[in-house]
Nucleic acid binder design. Sequence first.
DNA 1: GTATAAAGTTTTAGATATAAAATATATTGA
DNA 2: TCAATATATTTTATATCTAAAACTTTATAC
Lengths: 155, 155
Amino acid sequence: MIPQSEPPTEPMSKTRLRLWLKLLKTSGRIEAELRRRLRDEYATTLPRFDVMAALSRFPNGLKMSELSDLLRVSNGNVTGIVDRLTNNGHALRVAVPGDRRAQLARLTPAGQVAFTKLAQAHEAWLDELLQGLDADDAAILHTLLGKTERETNAQ
Amino acid sequence: MIPQSEPPTEPMSKTRLRLWLKLLKTSGRIEAELRRRLRDEYATTLPRFDVMAALSRFPNGLKMSELSDLLRVSNGNVTGIVDRLTNNGHALRVAVPGDRRAQLARLTPAGQVAFTKLAQAHEAWLDELLQGLDADDAAILHTLLGKTERETNAQ
DNA sequence: GTATAAAGTTTTAGATATAAAATATATTGA
DNA sequence: TCAATATATTTTATATCTAAAACTTTATAC
């Protein structure tokens, strides 16, 4: 066996740090582009789009706390976003029969129409922004991202 | 050739949309955990860490606009973060000889010491949070993430 | 049955984020 | 030189975001 003087390999922690920076840069770049297009083309924001997407999946409405849990944002935050959607005419608050503490947030008909357009644009934008990845790439990437779970106790 | 009735395949745009949601969820989960640890263990924030990291790479200081470009955040934003770092004793502003419009932000000695500790903790946290990925996984992931570039005109 | 605890939401305080206006300084061109 | 323009930063207005306090309503314990 011939002794080889190998090039010193990078410690694994440095490799993971570089990977994280790449991951952060990638998601940040795409997210910034989505925010820009939502603002410029539809005069809305990503948090509002996220809330509308959640409400769209539950036509009967969601309690503020349910929205907060689903989107993993704070309770107080949801209040402000739903406020703005309400001022917009895209959402409204409905009383919960039998519990005067709670309220349901729901999309208005105008909100549903608006969200349908937003969702189509959103999907088309991502199809464009992720052109560089084919079906195989996407499958591998999805799997590898899944391998990072279970290291944080948050689900 | 035998005709096969294949299962209907998902349109590529849906695949890319699901991938994006996974990417967003992954980076959000890790970022939230980093923010939590920076706050709980070091009483600081991710934006301040990012600014300190940039200043640490340039011991002679960076102009506010250079910081803004490097970190890709708005000019007004950098002002506030450097303000807080300055109040903290971790940064200071230095006049630029020959241009009274500009100022350099620099780490103080205390800021350099603090950042060294933060950076070590940060690298160790990521090593932990990305345990699920070995060196091969990381290399593949890094490459696939790279394939998403060049679709947005932002560098 | 009332005191206490729990649940649901909003409000508050502080930090971050952008875009756009305002301020101050430099540079340029006639 | 001096007006016009460009550069560098801060300020302002608005929107997010969290944690924690405040408030209302409901449920529970005794």
